[in-house]
């Protein structure tokens, strides 16, 4: 259940950024979450609901950009979508992959007022 720690870190980042911008309210928060970032979205939802209570994000609308994982095969250079680390290259069947996208886990932007 590391998702709770992740949500707490997001709240910390949001608070710090809102303070810097001298904002009274955070209206919206936009997150980038890759499908292979290690976040289980159900746990994330659960943790979010509990953790934002009484925080700067309690009233904020949340936008999540789910980023599909893509990898390049280091043997044949094919680029393809993956769901798991153990997915083989669909062209040559090798497992030596360079993950290009899907590990993202960041706070992209805030809308404050």
């Amino acid at each position: 259940m590391h998702e709770l720690s992740i949500v707490m870190s997001i709240i910390d980042i949001a608070k710090q950024q809102a303070d810097q911008a001298c904002a009274a309210v955070i209206d919206e928060i936009e997150l980038d979450i890759g499908t292979m970032s290690g976040i289980e979205m159900d746990s994330f939802e659960f943790a979010w609901k509990q953790a934002v209570k009484g925080s700067v994000l309690e009233q904020a609308a949340r936008k999540i950009n789910l980023i599909e994982a893509k990898a390049r095969c280091l043997d044949c250079d094919a680029v393809f979508s993956i769901q798991h680390y153990f997915d083989p290259c669909p062209v040559c069947g090798e497992h030596l992959l360079d993950i290009l996208n899907g590990k993202e886990l960041k706070v992209k932007s805030l809308v404050v007022s």
Binding site: D19, Q20, C22, A23, D27, L105, K106
Partner: peptide, 25 residues
């Protein structure tokens, strides 16, 4: 604990954060 002593703006602003959630760790 963190202090919070300053005035606030009232217009809506977009803050480009682009910060990794695990950045601090």
């Amino acid at each position: 604990s963190h202090d919070h002593g300053h005035s606030h703006a009232t217009t809506k602003t977009i803050v480009d954060v682009e910060q990794d959630v695990l950045h601090q760790n």
